[in-house]
């Protein structure tokens, strides 16, 4: 039975976004983000690649809860200045207007603190995983979900992305392999394995079933 291309035909970015949003907003757990990593083959090397397909960022309690003692990993003033600069440049890139503004509201939004999880999500857009590397690659190549719950488990992972996730305040990262990619979910909460969630991902993202 033919599997449609995830990024082609009817499975375009709009439907992908809709599915990621449905997954997160409809979940009983509090997920911070969902990413779809799309599989492809590098034309030159022939290597298998998992690259950014699309993502939905909901956010966590890092902006909504009362101030907590700042984690040792919480960004410094210099790091915040860097993040804001990058965000301003990204706004320019998207809007096509120097300094990224279509009005004061955009400038104000850019000047708000860029949280650790927002930054982790943004950096994810530049990442890819070759031949089974990283949590998404491991999940895809083993055809088995990876569910890493707990800062300690993330921090001690052999995977750079998992360690990075812990540094940026995430407590749970899940990678669920599909025919043409991987759905990754992350949360600042500790969330234990749920068969319901994995079934929901497979129903939402496997069109041919």
């Amino acid at each position: 039975e033919a599997q449609p291309s995830m990024m082609g035909g009817f499975f375009n970015q709009d439907t992908l976004q809709h599915r990621l949003q449905t997954l997160i907003e409809g979940a009983k757990e509090s997920w911070t983000y969902a990413i779809f990593w799309n599989t492809s083959v590098d034309d030159v090397s022939g290597a298998s690649l998992l690259g950014w397909g699309d993502g939905y960022y909901k956010g966590g309690d890092d902006k909504l809860s009362p101030p907590l003692p700042r984690r040792k990993t919480q960004s410094s003033a210099a790091e915040q200045a860097h993040r804001r600069k990058v965000l301003r440049e990204l706004n320019s890139l998207i809007s096509g207007v120097p300094n990224g503004g279509d009005g004061e509201d955009v400038v104000d939004a850019v000047d708000e603190e860029v949280t650790d999880t927002e930054w982790f999500f943004l950096v994810s857009m530049t990442q890819s995983f070759v031949n089974g590397s990283g949590l998404p690659g491991q999940a895809f190549f083993s055809s088995a979900p990876l569910w890493v719950a707990g800062g300690d488990r993330l921090a001690s992972s052999s995977c750079e992305r998992a360690r990075q996730a812990q540094v940026f305040g995430l407590q749970t990262v899940v990678c669920i392999p599909l025919a043409n990619g991987v759905v990754e979910l992350g949360s600042t909460d500790m969330i234990f394995q749920s068969a319901d969630l994995m079934n929901k991902v497979r129903i939402l993202f496997n069109f041919s079933r």
């Binding site: 970015q13 699309d54 440049e89 990204l90 998207i94 955009v106 939004a109 708000e112 857009m125």
Partner: peptide, 26 residues
């Protein structure tokens, strides 16, 4: 920003728009 390929632009634009909404509505 230079590391963000054209294909990511839609995701990025959506993220920035949602972020603006979150901050405006906070």
């Amino acid at each position: 920003p230079a590391a963000v390929p054209q294909a990511r632009k839609a995701s990025l634009a959506r993220f920035l728009e949602k972020r603006k909404e979150r901050i405006t509505n906070a």
